Simulated scan of single mutants.
Amino acid sequence: MRARRLATLSIAAAAALLLAGCTAAGNGTASGAPSPSGSPTDLCAAAAPSGATSDAVKVDGAAGAEATLTFTSPLDVTTTERTVISQGQGDPVQDGQFVSYAITAYNAQTGEKLGAVGYNPGEILPAAVSTTTASAQIFGCIAPGGRVVLTSPGTNGNPGEVDVFDLLAVVPTAATGAAQPPVDGMPTVTLDDTGKPTITIPSGAAAPTDVKIADLKTGDGAVVAPGDKVLVQYTGVLWPDGTEFDSSWTRGTPASFQTTGVVPGFQQALEGQKVGSQVLVVIPPAFGYGDTAQGSIPAGSTLVFVIDILGTQHAAAQ
């Protein structure tokens, strides 16, 4: 089963979209996802309750790998229930954090295994956990390494499902790769304690006429392929004065979009990079917006971005 169909079925069965609404158009703007404002207690209260239906499911296998489920079918699922199989290790996930996760899904009526997704890098984009979405029903009050069974009634013509969700890790909101030496002639970048960049343009330097890319940090995660959907932090400024025109850091949450949904220079900076990397890119007008003004970006502008790559979902899995 294709990962997109599996994820869609499982999220629908959980009664809401699990992935928070972070999108970005070609102009780099993004809609906000939940920001860290709650507490583990809030998520505990929002977690789906256990019940006789979810408790009746037997789960074999270790958390972090595909599960084998045993239950008597058809399973009569009338409400969403959650049974915690493993609490995980360390602090429970907090409201607003992003997590990587995996799903093993079964049809509640037939007992058929629908498939598994997220156990391999690049299959699912990290999700924001929030008390305002179904993600809290699933992941509330558990820690990385945790595993839960979720039984969900059918919606939109889909049969009820029995799903195992594994909370694999809390995803950092800044690149964590190995630092690389600066490249001569490129803008300089300094980071504050949160990882937010400040970009300084070389004084008196002429803007390049080709796209220039420098690796600031090199990650070791999945490689971003053409057409992938990515989760990123980024800041964009104008050459030569360094005026900021857009920043996910300023909005307080990462953004997600497909690599084919941004200007060509930004796309070049993403594709071929590994998750965990931080990339500096200078984009001349021909690879940006050309002679067309875009909001606060004047026509003919050279753009400079620092991009932290936090996650990727391969196009084949969408």
Score class of each variant (00 low, 15 high):
T78S: 15
T79W: 04
T80R: 14
T80Y: 02
E81D: 11
E81F: 09
E81A: 09
R82Y: 05
R82I: 08
R82S: 07
T83V: 10
T83R: 15
T83Y: 00
V84G: 11
V84L: 11
I85M: 13
I85A: 04
S86E: 15
Q87C: 00
G88K: 05
G88Q: 06
G88T: 10
Q89T: 15
D91R: 14
V93D: 08
Q94V: 14
Q94N: 15
D95K: 09
G96L: 12
G96I: 09
Q97T: 01
Q97Y: 01
F98V: 01
F98A: 10
F98M: 04
F98G: 01
F98E: 02
F98R: 06
V99S: 01
V99D: 03
V99Q: 03
S100Y: 00
S100R: 13
S100G: 13
A102G: 11
I103G: 01
T104W: 01
T104D: 03
N107H: 01
N107Q: 04
N107P: 04
N107E: 00
A108C: 03
A108R: 02
Q109G: 10
Q109S: 12
T110W: 06
T110M: 08
G111A: 06
E112Y: 11
K113C: 08
L114R: 12
L114I: 12
L114M: 14
A116P: 02
A116T: 14
V117W: 05
V117F: 07
V117C: 06
V117M: 07
V117P: 04
Y119Q: 05
Y119V: 06
Y119R: 10
N120T: 14
N120M: 14
P121Y: 07
I124N: 05
I124G: 00
I124R: 14
I124C: 04
I124Y: 07
L125P: 04
P126Q: 07
P126C: 03
P126G: 04
P126D: 07
P126S: 05
P126I: 03
P126F: 03
V129A: 02
S130A: 15
S130V: 06
S130P: 05
T132A: 15
